[in-house]
């Protein structure tokens, strides 16, 4: 189902959590709401679910205005960070819950409910555990039960609030891959909240990057990574280095020296240069950024070097081959291969 969020504003005790947010979620896509804590991503998810009501604005499910509907009427599947499984029910009872609370008229017979729950447990690869209780399961298993429980009501939209946030790194990676496969198989419109950019980049069809109650950028992982439209997005997604520069005569200047980087348009004045540490080339005898190495450490297959540029204490990070002999006090000159100016 297609979900449209139109000019939604949300205040908690007059403290704004979301300012005028609009977002179109396509039918069948897997979209990530990504942002640091306090960016309003969870609030937005809960607004879609109906667990919060917007101060202003509307939420549409397809063509229907869902803003006035209660959470029960919206037919959404919600997965919580801390699972929220019913601890006094078995796994089977947990998964069956959504169907068994339906009014008599629409409730399937108990045999059918059981069959459906067993099917879902099979789908989340937990067959054989239906008689267990939640506290007898590992975190990863619990979250899969929570997902099966949410899927049982055949939701129009699946909403996941930091679904892997409480799990350790190994399980997280496995579940991430598994969720992607699940999504490809079932095709639910899925919205998930995360603060983990790696998770969002790997899992989502599209990212919605949020900061301080606003949407910064929406786009495919590649677009957001390669063409960030704001300094926040550049800094938040992937590694980045930042340097204040001056734009003059169609060129960028730092510390009174041209750095060999052409300015994109005719504007002049102060600006901030952003580039990825790995998108640089070392140069000699040419206009470049030059600095003194202040620290150098090896990270896996590369060497991450911190350079102090000029006398103002501005520091940037660049990546070198791990066997590069750069040590402290070495002077290095480089030029970013790709960059953005804000």
């Amino acid at each position: 189902m297609q979900v449209r969020i139109a000019n939604v504003r949300k205040e908690f005790d007059r403290f704004p959590a979301l300012h005028d947010v609009s977002l179109d979620i396509h039918s069948g896509e897997l979209i990530a709401l990504l942002g640091p804590s306090g960016s309003g991503k969870t609030t937005l998810l809960r607004l879609i679910a109906g667990l919060e009501t917007p101060t202003d604005g509307k939420v549409f499910f397809g063509d229907i205005d869902a803003s006035e509907k209660t959470v029960q009427e919206r037919n959404i599947g919600f997965v919580f960070q801390h699972y929220a499984l019913f601890r006094h029910m078995t796994i089977l009872e947990n998964v069956s819950f959504g169907l068994s609370v339906r009014p008599r008229a629409t409730r399937p017979p108990s045999g059918e409910i059981r069959g459906r729950a067993m099917e879902l447990l099979d789908l989340v690869q937990l067959s054989g555990l239906e008689k267990r209780y939640p506290n007898q399961l590992s975190g990863g298993q619990r979250q899969r039960v929570a997902l099966a429980r949410a899927l049982a009501i055949e939701p129009g939209v699946l909403l996941l609030d930091e679904p892997f946030g409480a799990l350790d790194a190994q399980v997280r990676r496995e579940l991430r891959k598994w969720l992607r496969e699940m999504h490809d198989r079932t095709g639910h419109t899925t919205v998930f909240v995360t603060h983990d950019q790696e998770e969002a980049l790997e899992l989502a069809d599209r990212l919605c990057v949020m900061s301080q109650g606003k949407i910064e950028q929406v786009g495919s992982p590649d677009t957001v990574y390669d063409n960030p439209t704001s300094p926040f997005v550049f800094g938040f997604i992937g590694e980045s280095s930042e340097l204040p520069v001056t734009v003059e005569n169609g060129e960028l200047w730092s510390g009174g020296r041209a750095i060999g980087v052409p300015a994109p348009d005719s504007k002049t004045g102060e600006a901030r240069l952003f580039f990825r540490p790995h998108d640089v080339e070392l140069v000699e005898h040419e206009a470049s950024l030059a600095g003194v190495v202040t620290s150098s450490r090896r990270v896996g297959g590369t060497r991450r070097v911190e350079l102090e540029i000029g006398g103002d204490g501005h520091k940037v990070e660049i990546d070198l081959p791990f066997d590069h002999p750069a040590g402290e006090k070495t002077r290095l000159a480089f030029r970013p291969k790709r960059w953005r100016l804000f």
Binding site: Q72, F80, A84, V101, A150, I153
Partner: peptide, 21 residues
Amino acid sequence: TGDEEAALSLGANGWQTFWRV
């Protein structure tokens, strides 16, 4: 309120949520 929210999102009404969760 996590368990109650989960129950509501699964379609349970307030009464069912109270007695069953």
